[in-house]
């Protein structure tokens, strides 16, 4: 205890401290400004991305015509007479994405239906974290898996399969995005009001009928949004296709062959230490710009659909 027995007068003590407070108040006023500057980092990131991609892409189009780039079916950056058609890469990207969606859309959707409409609370609580684990596995591990396990496995079924091919990474990419579709679609389905389900159940509908005729139509835009996001994710995926699909710039529909995606091309060019200023170097940005625009449009579309969905209830 203090030596003198005077009672403490808090308000007096407080007003004595006022002097030191003034400095603190200046600091207090500066805080919103500091925080705003911190928050603007994310805006500068976007500006940075757009600026780098854009300015270098313009350099590229000074050397290669826009028409050749977007309509050319031949990509031969290293040959004597280089050709810079982006279509082989778009072909590779779209093919792997379609394969992935063929795997992920039905399985992801059925998983979502099971978890939202059929599973007991306990099963749901065990399965959801397990799916999260699946989603948390680094893509490099999936790439390894596609290359060393799925491709050899598929070779037993399809003898003509090349060591690097578009099929195997497509399938594995599909497996990778199952959790994404499942969890986003499940969210959409779970937010369908129970009253709608009960109405149908009371008429004697089975759970399947409730799911297909009530829940899925009601959650439709949410499900669509999850598909679009998954597509965008597949388009931007890099490591699986880089490892398992190789670098042949084939413009083909043959799934057993190696095809290169836009992302894999970027990896190949940067890994090859293309000298800054060369056409190859700039082509990297033109491809990245194409990739960026693709995924951005997908994401904007997904959010537009999802927002519409929210308004429905």
């Amino acid at each position: 205890m203090r030596t003198n027995n005077e009672p403490v007068h808090v308000q007096e003590l407080i007003s004595k401290k006022k002097q030191s407070k003034n400095l603190f108040l200046k600091f207090e006023k500066a805080i919103p400004i500091i925080l705003f500057l911190i928050a603007s980092v994310s805006v500068f990131t976007t500006i940075g991305i757009i600026y780098t991609l854009f300015s270098e892409t313009i350099e590229f189009f000074k050397q290669v015509s826009v028409v050749e780039f977007f309509t050319g079916t031949v990509l031969k950056p290293l040959s004597q007479d280089p050709k810079f058609g982006v279509l082989p890469l778009i072909m590779g990207t779209l093919t792997s994405t379609v394969i992935a969606m063929l795997v992920a859309a039905p399985i992801g959707l059925m998983t979502a239906i099971y978890l939202s409409e059929f599973a007991s609370e306990r099963i749901r609580k065990t399965f959801k974290p397990l799916l999260e684990i699946l989603a948390g596995i680094p893509t490099i591990v999936y790439g390894f898996f596609a290359f060393t396990f799925v491709t050899p496995l598929l070779k037993h079924v399809i003898p003509g399969l090349e060591t690097t091919n578009i099929l195997s990474p497509g399938i594995v990419m599909g497996i990778m995005i199952i959790p994404m579709i499942a969890s986003l679609s499940e969210d959409a389905m779970s937010s369908v009001p129970n009253a709608m389900r009960e109405g149908a159940l009371a008429l004697g509908a089975t759970k399947l009928e409730v799911a297909t005729r009530v829940v899925i139509p009601a959650a439709f835009s949410g499900i669509v949004a999850s598909f679009v996001l998954a597509i965008s994710r597949a388009i931007g995926e890099t490591m699986i296709v880089t490892i398992a699909s190789g670098s042949s710039k084939n413009f083909t529909f043959d799934l057993t062959q190696s095809m290169q995606t836009m992302t894999a091309y970027i990896v190949e060019v940067t890994g090859g230490d293309a000298p800054a200023g060369s056409t190859i170097y700039y082509s990297l940005y033109a491809v990245a710009m194409t990739l960026f625009v693709f995924t951005l449009l997908m994401n904007l579309f997904a959010r537009y659909v999802a927002r519409k969905f929210k308004e429905e209830y």
Partner: peptide
Amino acid sequence: HGIRNKMILD
């Protein structure tokens, strides 16, 4: 309000 003395706080 700036009062930090442990004994006073007690």
